[in-house]
Design a protein around this nucleic acid. Structure first.
Lengths: 189, 189
DNA sequence: GTTGCTTTTTGTCAAATGGCAAATGATTTC
DNA sequence: GAAATCATTTGCCATTTGACAAAAAGCAAC
């Protein structure tokens, strides 16, 4: 919980009363490995903060291949933004890839906080903006790099994930097959 | 100018007085083909809105290859955000790839508008947020697609650009060589 | 330890893509 | 219109990557 407070205070100031209001709305959610936080075809109903574990967001492209869009590690927010904001069906799965512990807020509570705590909206704006920038920074540059460079870039961004999650997820994030990734691993040892 | 007003009013409401304040700060900038709007190694000093023409943002990766990050077409904002906001040297070139006509705001005027017009900050937030989402949506999915699919996706996003800009820019956006792109073109005719 | 299950590695072959250079085509300049 | 310049296409060959399948390794349950 303390981690969450520190996290949000990076983005703006809140007094103790405001912090308490936020904390009162948060509930702890334990997600076992492979469980979904939100699913394609449904409307995302909650916003989360990863206390422990790793999450991934993935979808199926029009060839039916499973694509991992990004990973979310500890001390980051997790939400299917398009779906949650606009209350439309998502086309992505948000899935725990290790056992996870999250703080979650329901849509109703989240809205209430936005209405009640004046500086909260600005803070949320900044959090979202930072997340979007990270997404642009992290995945787009992969487009123009070869498979080996992509993997090296992945290692830099997510240094702790390699031994934590299946090779196939990494491959589907990098846009290469897991066989290729396996060969690349071998070659750079 | 009218296009610009319509553009910003999509993102929030402003009264006539506020609109006039904004317009008074805007100056028209004509950029000939190949000229730079902002450059790597320098601090971006202005925010622009593309009235006519096409802009691209590019950089050189660590293999010295020129990479086109994205294109900006008419009726969109153009700014090297990281550099402009934080007043740090950019590593990207923002370049006119056709003759362009822009509305521009200096850093000083831009700040003044943010301080003067209360709803302006929220509008700018939304504009930036939308731009970031577009970037994520448009380029990241290319990572996991083959060259032909990438080109088809490019055609959908920028249907008017194909005959307007050099093949090499498109190739450097898609992460393929211009020879390959030329062959792909041939194959899908 | 053995068994069953999943993940990772490896081999083989085919297809896609890149690098290079030459040929062709288009555009500008004089 | 000829020359010069730049953009695009094409051919050739090398390399990378994918698809598929089999082998090996890791792991948990018994």
């Amino acid at each position: 919980m303390k981690d969450f407070i520190n996290y949000i205070l990076q983005f703006g100031d809140l007094n103790q009363q405001q912090i308490d209001l936020i904390i009162n709305k948060a509930t702890v959610l334990e997600l076992p490995k492979d469980a979904y936080f939100s699913e394609a075809g449904k409307i995302a109903q909650q916003v989360g903060f990863v206390l422990e574990g790793v999450i991934r967001v993935c979808y199926y492209n029009n060839k039916g291949e499973e694509i991992t869009k990004y990973f979310i590690v500890e001390n980051n927010m997790v939400v299917d933004l398009e779906s949650f904001e606009n209350e439309i069906c998502s086309n992505a799965y948000v899935q725990a890839i290790t056992d996870c512990k999250l703080l979650v807020f329901s849509r109703k509570d989240w809205k209430e906080l936005l209405d009640t705590i004046i500086p909260w909206e600005a803070i949320v704006h900044k959090i979202i903006s930072k997340a979007l920038r990270q997404k642009v920074e992290r995945r787009s540059p992969l487009v123009t790099e070869d498979a080996t460079t992509r993997y090296v870039m992945f290692l830099k961004i997510y240094p702790n994930l390699v031994n934590l999650i299946p090779l196939s997820y990494i491959a589907s994030y990098l846009g290469i097959t897991q066989s290729s990734l396996s060969r690349i691993r071998k070659s750079i040892r």
